[in-house]
Write a protein that binds this DNA or RNA. Structure first.
Lengths: 224, 224
DNA sequence: TACATTTTATTAGTTTTTTCACAAATAGAT
DNA sequence: ATCTATTTGTGAAAAAACTAATAAAATGTA
């Protein structure tokens, strides 16, 4: 039994890094690496080694002094944490340009996440298939989602219709939504909604580039 | 002259919210709203009112007690901060499924950000056009980027080739990169690189949904 | 086996971010 | 012109996240 079961909740900042850790552990495993030290791992993923050790420590004493961490064991632990042995069945709502692209990729390199079904309201696309996924009518969302055992939903609906689409999704009992429409929508408190907004990301990046890190540009950066 | 010029740097957390603030101020303006109180705005964008006031305060005394904030004035200020009057000319590298989708959208609703040119290494796509943007050979990146006055680059290259593509970009003097390939790449310190990884985002979301917010699910959530 | 080296896990300390709560300022009513 | 109700801006407190530094533990070498 690891610490998490008995103790304090995992810090949000830590939780956000877990998928990154897991991805790189898998990469290491594929390269046949059996053991990894926090400092080496730090170089790889560009997260300070102290942060890595602190993060890992929330899940128990995973490493051994003077040795480092055993990669297969770490993978076992993080796999459990992310419950990767359970297939996550995803639905996609909104089959526009972006939706189509996500369908075509369908988490290619990841055997744990799969877009099972897609929805739209446009009669033109309903009934067609993309990458072997049939586009269904959004009106049938609840029914199909239940039948397919959907865990989480990605919405790539235009802002204008996002609230309506998300109401439908929430009504079906789904509690995890990844929303590409930048406008904030109203959801009940128990629903977890995450926003991905390209424009905002890019504006933030440019803002940092222009203001926040001028110091770096002048060559006054402190050491890595 | 506002505070930012004279005083302390803007906190990172604040900087990240600026584009969100700006977007919603524009929405308000379009609806003809002239004044907004931090509490109302808070409801809209789902950021605590105290955070909003604190954030705004970094740029001077923008509001008036007992009144709130003047929307046109706020827009003026944030427009200046984000330098939205200057067109940001973006390049896109990697014209796969996702790259194509971004090209087709091309920040439709935003008059400040424009994808000016796109690059790939596949002879099949080089020379073709998507949404009036011609796909150029990545080998000509530096030359074209200079001619086009590119400020920032979006990379939608497969992980395997991301490092190479980004080396090319960095070599041309670009310092702001938004990278959709999830693997960490090495860049000089003065380069600002931001990662967007759908898989990670979704895994994080699901992790939170399964672990972190069980409390909410049990109906024990604290008040909004 | 003993010992010098390595590396974790953790304690303590620092910085950053968020939140509280209220004086001061202003609005708008009378 | 006065008064009451609002709402800001900000000190101060609290919470969260990060970093430093080190004792303890384990490694691996002689």
């Amino acid at each position: 039994m690891n610490k998490q079961d008995q103790n304090k909740p995992i810090p949000k900042a830590t939780a956000k890094r877990i998928p990154l850790y897991f991805r790189y552990l898998r990469t290491l495993q594929e390269s046949g690496v059996i053991r990894i030290k926090s400092k080496e791992f730090s170089q790889m993923i560009q997260v300070p080694s102290a942060t890595i050790r602190r993060d890992f420590s929330h899940f128990g004493e995973l490493g051994r002094s003077g040795y480092g961490y055993d990669v297969p064991y770490l993978i076992e632990v993080f796999s459990e944490i992310l419950s990767t042995q359970v297939e996550k069945r995803i639905a996609l709502v909104g089959v526009g340009n972006l939706g189509k692209a996500l369908l075509k990729n369908n988490f290619r390199r990841n055997e744990n996440l799969t877009i099972m079904c897609a929805f739209d309201s446009d009669p033109e696309v309903i009934g067609t298939c993309i990458n072997c996924v049939e586009i269904k009518n959004i009106h049938d969302f609840s029914e199909v989602a239940k039948k397919e055992g959907i865990t989480a939903v990605i919405t790539t609906v235009p802002s204008k219709h996002a609230q309506q689409a998300i109401d439908t999704i929430v009504a079906s009992g789904i509690t995890a939504i990844l929303n590409f429409a930048p406008d904030r929508v109203k959801v009940p408190e128990h629903v977890n909604i995450q926003y991905i907004d390209l424009t905002t990301e890019l504006q933030t990046l440019i803002y940092f580039d222009e203001h926040v890190s001028q110091v770096n540009k002048l060559g006054l950066a402190k050491k890595a």
